[in-house]
Design a protein around this nucleic acid. Structure first.
Lengths: 200, 200
DNA sequence: CGTCACTTTGACCACTTGGTCAAATCAAGA
DNA sequence: TCTTGATTTGACCAAGTGGTCAAAGTGACG
């Protein structure tokens, strides 16, 4: 029998989560402070703790929200589609995530860098299961001669690496490119790369 | 007229730097504490501060040591070598760094994720200069028809992404692969990938 | 063995941190 | 308007933080 959230609750919870995403994605869990988050959310610290019981709770909600959508692009890889087009589309969806949700990508990167203490079991079960499943599809395509015979797990890793790099290492990419916008070139490059790799 | 370090100094400074690398690479600068580092080094906190004036100083030495060797693999890319072999060798050197120095890779990743506050100017000058220089070499190879015509900057980014992924996301890679060792497969996959991408 | 520079540490400090609480303020429906 | 529940905050706390310091301990060399 939970009550529906008031307008103020909605606004402040959203502000806190946005602020938390900003701060956590940059400094990691331990490197972030409630004061930072409160300041970024435009609230006082006690007020922030009126909406979330602890620092941990904010982080937890953010990670949950992230995991909810993080695997969607891979989930959509369809065994009945045209193989090269399917993998290409997957990579482009993943790259779009990096472009449109770089903070989420960095939040995830921080969690993994710290040893994934909060999501390790999910990685070992849900993620592993889905990757194995999709790898089997890719492997079947290869065995059928529809694409080149590449290691499907490392193909998936390479797509993760290539796409997330543009979000996680954004500052380095931009430092090297100067003014030039990264994502147009990245889109073309990754498409070329995958096409060539998969050509039988 | 600086005195040569005693045996004890050598041992303790090395222990502190190793401990600092362990801790900073996992939690980032702000997420790490002197107590953690001191404990990992087997020293008391005041004793640690006898060898380094501050937390910042330890981190600074580690970053300096890192940058000293981080660009060596790229620096070695030789315009007079055989193009495909040169790029392949570069990628393999970089992958070996990930395998043999994963903590250094994660230290770097943490610094970049946090916005590269301590090395941004180096990225914008030294790194950018070297990447532009090597990109020009790759471009010349492409124009000469020796390799395919790919965007050289994104080619370099892709090698960074692919290789560093195995160090930075090690825990995720292993969670997905289970017992299987990542680097053998990665070596083969990356070699295949680059060969195919560069084939004219 | 004595000495002196090098090393180590316990006690301490100011500041930050995550979190609490009672009291004050505010908003909306009766 | 009044009431009541939702919201906000200043003051506060215990633990953790980076860092200091004087004093004690130790090693190497004459």
């Amino acid at each position: 029998m939970t009550k529906p959230p008031t307008r103020i609750q909605q606004r402040n919870q959203a502000a806190i989560l946005t602020a938390g995403l900003d701060v956590f994605s940059q400094f990691g869990f331990r490197g972030s402070t409630l004061d930072q988050i409160a300041e970024a959310a435009g609230l006082s610290k006690p007020n922030l703790l009126y909406y979330f019981p602890s620092k941990e709770a904010i982080h937890e909600v953010l990670l949950e929200q992230l995991l909810e959508t993080w695997l969607d692009p891979l989930r959509a890889l369809d065994r009945d589609g045209e193989p090269v087009a399917e993998v290409l589309a997957y990579a482009q969806r993943k790259l779009a995530l990096s472009r449109d949700y770089p903070r989420e990508s960095r939040l995830f990167a921080n969690e993994i860098l710290q040893g994934a203490p909060r999501i390790l079991d999910i990685l070992r079960t849900d993620l592993r299961r889905m990757v194995d499943e999709k790898a089997a599809i890719i492997d079947a395509w290869a065995k059928a001669g529809k694409i080149a015979d590449v290691d499907p797990h490392h193909l998936i890793f390479s797509i993760w690496a290539l796409t997330q790099h543009y979000a996680d290492f954004d500052v380095q990419v931009r430092a090297v490119l100067g003014d030039r916008e990264p994502y147009d070139g990245a889109t073309v490059f990754i498409e070329t790369l995958i096409t060539k790799v998969l050509r039988p």
